[in-house]
Amino acid sequence: MHLVRGVILLAACALLCISGCRSLAPIQPASSALHADTARQCRAHFLARPRQLVQSLTAYLPDGDVRDAIAVIRIHPEAGRIKCVIMSVEGLVLFDGEYDGGVSIRRAVPPFDEKKFARAMFADIRLAFISPEAENVQVGTLSGGTPICRYARSDGKGFVEVRLSGADRLEIRRYTSGKKLRETVNICYPPACGSPLPGGAGEIPAKIDIFHHGLFDYRLELNLLEAKELPRTEKQ
């Protein structure tokens, strides 16, 4: 009888651990030279100047359906302001809204008129393009040698990791404060991923894959069509 109780207790502990005892991968401290280089590369990914990006967007929805659209995004990284218009391939505006500390929707057709959708979309854009506000940044390498920067968000809402996963590629992960993985963003720069920009050069990612993890997993694939720098003083 004691044995049965013990097994049940162990099973319960295992279940609890699977669902709740998550942890972030350990980071090995880097040498000072590697530390500085990794920190620089992590910072370099995020936009330093205002940009307007035109992206093709393919959404892989939880029900298996696939939708396509085109997104025009204006990002002012210093102010944290974002404006976004999503339109059908045929040109019909599906969503027109902005984020400036809060979400406002100027125009939207269902299902894009849900605030929840707008909040998630702006959070995706912030995660992919704007450096997280962090109280501290842990820099080093993962056990496999991948350089990593881990930002503990200053709003207490979890962690953001930038993993320098290869030449022209990096991965951004967002965890909750409970260390649960919520989003993975795979980013690919030219020349590994072709760029439509003149010369194929690229300080702007050519391809971005955003994976949402949770009960309703979905994936967004963004491919760069156009990019231009905006004046810093421009009002949205």
Binding site: S88, E90, L92, V109, P110, D113
Partner: peptide, 20 residues
């Protein structure tokens, strides 16, 4: 906020309208 409801079908309609 200009929120539009009841127009999913209109959106599809306009798409087809463009085409046709």
């Amino acid at each position: 906020m200009k929120k539009i409801s009841k127009n999913t079908e209109y959106a599809a309609f306009l798409t087809v309208l463009l085409a046709c």
